[in-house]
Amino acid sequence: MKTRLYSPDIECDSCVKVLNRMLKKERGITDFKITTEYIDLSYDKKLKLKLLMKRIKEKGYRVSSRPMDRPQIRERIGEFLTDRKKYMIEWRMLKYMTVTLIFALVLQGAFAYMMDGLRPGFMAAYWPWLTYLTFSTVFISAAVWHFLAYRTTVTCMTGMMIGMTIGMQTGMLVGAVLGVTNGFFWGAMVGMLSGSIIGAWTGNCCGIMGIMEGLMSGIMGGTMGAMITVMMVFDHIHWFMPVYVFLNLLILVGFSYMLFEELVEGKDVAVKPASFPAFLAACLGALALLTALVVFLPKSTFLGV
């Protein structure tokens, strides 16, 4: 009988030698060949294939009778939590994000408090929307920082996905907040422009296809984000918005996961992350600009202050 077993963990000559020694001792194996992708086995009835696979797993190599190029999400998360060296950039991203988020929320709180003195009712009316804007800006900035940290070439498909995701999520989040605070026109305009600019910039990594994808998704995301919240503004918007923002931020987390899978895993990629002061300055600069637009552009009738 013959079979092929797949293991994504056979990475080097030593892995091959370890398995080679192991299989030589197994009863029932008449012939075998090990490569860095699979193990071809010829065996007779004496071999219990499931037991063999169990023993290979006990050695630390995942194995399956079907191709498994990548770890499952659960395995990846487990690895992420235990192997800080491999995921150094991702852990750094989380650290930068957390510190920046706390700092930005404190600044936004102070700003809202100060504005409340000038315009009574400002805090109650604007605080939730400024908070959504803060979360959105920090998450988008972190996703872009993560992408820029890896200096590598990308395929057209991946580049399009990068431009599209960043453009779409920027448009959806910014457009939604400004839709509520400033009405459909300004929400769509600011959402569309910010989404298109950042989408085209990040999509540029793979050339014109990525740029077009970034532009299109910015237009779609910005107009849709504003449209959704304007349509929902008098219908449970305060219940809708946390769910909407959470799901959009979840997509950005998924984006970073995808980025690692496509650009980093199994490849020799140059790493050059931007420093924390640069990240903080870019993040707070973008947030200050968006906050100014929210506060000083013509306001929607919903807020009433």
Binding site: E11, C12, S14, C15, K17, R21
Partner: peptide, 16 residues
């Protein structure tokens, strides 16, 4: 010795 497999390889050889 650059990885866990190298470590395993040496361990297996010594035990053998």
């Amino acid at each position: 010795m650059h990885c866990k497999s190298c470590k395993m390889l040496v361990e297996d050889e010594l035990e053998d």
